[in-house]
Design a protein around this nucleic acid. Structure first.
Lengths: 228, 228
DNA sequence: ACAAGAATACTAGTATACAAGTCCAAGAGT
DNA sequence: ACTCTTGGACTTGTATACTAGTATTCTTGT
């Protein structure tokens, strides 16, 4: 008994997935970019097998487009997909925030306030990297309060499309402040047990992405797939 | 020029996916069943590569559980996952059916009636196989009328969990008739441009799965994952 | 110069070989 | 009889080799 726990090194595919996904979301790899299994495997110093597994998964998420025997490309942004993703998120989170209000207990209020305090320093520092997980944590908390924690996986799925637009559109410097102010208003309405108010602000909050979509369409129209 | 179009034979993985998915949904492979990549590949007469790809996708869908270095199993039914899937579907389709009513045009009414007529013979014959696609087609039509056709992919995703319960619970002989009657009432309310009525019946319609869940829990409790 | 066709250099799909972790059971030692 | 150890038979993870389809480029004939 050495007391030493040998760590399993994480599967290569898991690491590759996180890295490539982030590169696409942040725009390091722009929509339309060609990226073959062989070349990416060589670039990352691994074999095609895990790369192929990652490509398949990202294709299912709508971030890659695989054309058999031809090539793989970073998927163009589908305006329809983005709009419908926003619709799904708004529909689900507006309903769950109502439920959160109805089920809220005193200790939940404290948890919500704690989430805000975790976000505040990131906002003041203009630190997007730190803000994103704290942002998600608040939304997860509200869903948990609603008693539907498992639907976060569905929201995460559609949120992928929205996050990519957010990243690519280069939100302005005061964006963090705006988002945070809306978070404060939502939490305030929840603590006041005002379901209508909380839902209204949540709806407004989740519709701010539309301005990002419009800005991106104006500045980078070639990122979008033809609407057909 | 021969006029003969050489068909690309469909990728093996695609075929494997459809077959294995159906086997799991229908219960030919019961929850908890062990199924290794090697054995299934041998059984299907293909190599591990496409089998592995299919396993990953089904694991992402929550139909398989892959334990590294140990084995792969047909996933147990998660009561939480099923309930939250129902919640997502109800939330989305209740909202879209309202929108369908608001946007409905005369030619849409005809399309809805046509879908009912397509379902009727399957109901009279007690033909589940023929009914399922006609059932889905009606729901897709309503979503299309709402102008949100793309959210069907989200609904399909959560619907997987619900369909499995439906299959495994062995719905009674008169189930088709009940479902069809609800379809008729929904279509009738849409044609009457009664958004509240249509939404109410849709909600009732999508909650019938709860009786299937209860029946399955009573008859096959070992199909379910411990709730923790 | 130009158009048609053949060689070439890619691509993803599939098969196979090897590596490493896990579980179970048989057997040795006490 | 019981415990511990050790070996073997699994499992999935990864690497590599081969197949077949596609697009481009270069050659060839006019």
């Amino acid at each position: 008994m050495t007391g030493l726990v040998l760590e399993h090194r994480a599967p290569i595919a898991r690491e590759l997935y996180a890295v490539l996904r982030q590169r696409i979301l942040t725009g390091a790899l722009e929509p339309g970019t060609t990226i073959s299994e062989t070349s990416y495997a060589g670039q990352m110093g691994v074999s095609r097998t895990p790369v192929r597994e990652v490509f398949r998964r990202l294709a299912d998420e709508g971030l890659l487009e695989v054309r058999p025997q031809v090539g793989t490309y970073v998927a163009a942004i589908s305006l329809t997909a983005v709009h419908d993703s926003q619709f799904v998120r708004e529909t689900l989170e507006c309903r769950t925030v109502r439920m959160a209000v109805e089920r809220a207990r005193p200790e939940d209020d404290a948890a919500l306030r704690a989430h805000l305090e975790r976000q505040r320093p990131a906002v003041l520092a203009g630190d997007y990297i730190a803000f994103f997980p704290a942002d998600e944590a608040l939304h997860v908390e509200l869903i948990r309060m609603a008693g539907r924690a498992a639907i976060w996986s569905v929201i995460q799925d559609v949120k992928t499309q929205l996050d990519r637009v957010r990243y690519l559109s280069f939100e302005s410097r005061d964006w963090l402040g705006k988002i945070f102010a809306e978070h404060e208003r939502i939490v305030e309405r929840v603590i006041a047990r005002d379901a209508d108010g909380a839902e209204a602000i949540m709806r407004e909050h989740l519709r701010t992405v539309f301005t990002a979509i419009e800005r991106l369409m104006a500045s980078k129209p070639h990122f979008f797939a033809p609407s057909r």
